[in-house]
Amino acid sequence: MHIVVCIKQVPDTKIIKINPKTNTLDRRSAPAILNPYDAHAVQEAVKIKGKTGGTISVLSMGPPQATAIIKKSIEIGADRGYLITDRAFAGADTLATSYALSKALERIGKELPVDMVICGKHAIDGDTGQVGPGIARRMDIPPVTNVIEVAEVNQEEKTVLIKRKLSNGYELIQSELPCLLTVEKEINQIEYSPMLNMIKAARYEPTIWAVSDLENVDRTQLGLKGSPTIVGKMFTPPRPEGGKRLEGSPDEQVKQLMDVLMEKKDLFTIQPSK
């Protein structure tokens, strides 16, 4: 079983702060981290490998500093890491991103055939959730999105049983291998990394590829050039008009508010008294 997990480096929006007065982003405060959903994707690969054995590779497209998230993935339990980094990838939208990643997957697959690709449900910065299904289409393997459990992997039959989240429950899907999954956070808990992994990670040197290391690449499909979507204007959404300020003592203010609320009293469930 060879599982490849696609991982993205993102700024930590938990730490990033917005100044509520000016509504501007304080970028200095945002360290780069492994996209949280992708951490769960790596963890899931580790879980699957625990049952089936095999190899876990992680793949990222990003700046050279993205080696940090590859090391992080090795800590969680990945075996190999690949980083594709090149000026030519810059400015990619999701279509160009899935193209570049699928080309790298092609090369990884030549070294060791890929049985499963796992992505996060979405990246917390770009937040489109479009890259995973895009890669699946380019590799022509079935995508299963919003996965909350990988219930069974049958290596003989080359099938996998998956629970996909729905708004009011889940569906149980059987898919052929290879396939691509995108995972929800609830699929697993990130476990403490064994000391051995930490040591391995500290010394690990990922494989780094530029465009020229990939085969049959149509450069017009990469980066900004290969992106059909472009970011047009950026604007601050107009704030809605400020409303009426209620005046007076707390009691008086509440009284005025009550008048407003009681105009809508049909909304409130008035229990019949016993």
Partner: peptide, 23 residues
């Protein structure tokens, strides 16, 4: 922009190919 809508749109846009604006 539901799980079905996103899943389908992402796949379709890749095959066409065309741009897809999210959310």
């Amino acid at each position: 922009a539901t799980s079905t809508g996103k899943d389908l749109a992402s796949a379709v846009a890749t095959d066409m190919p065309t741009g897809l604006t999210a959310d």
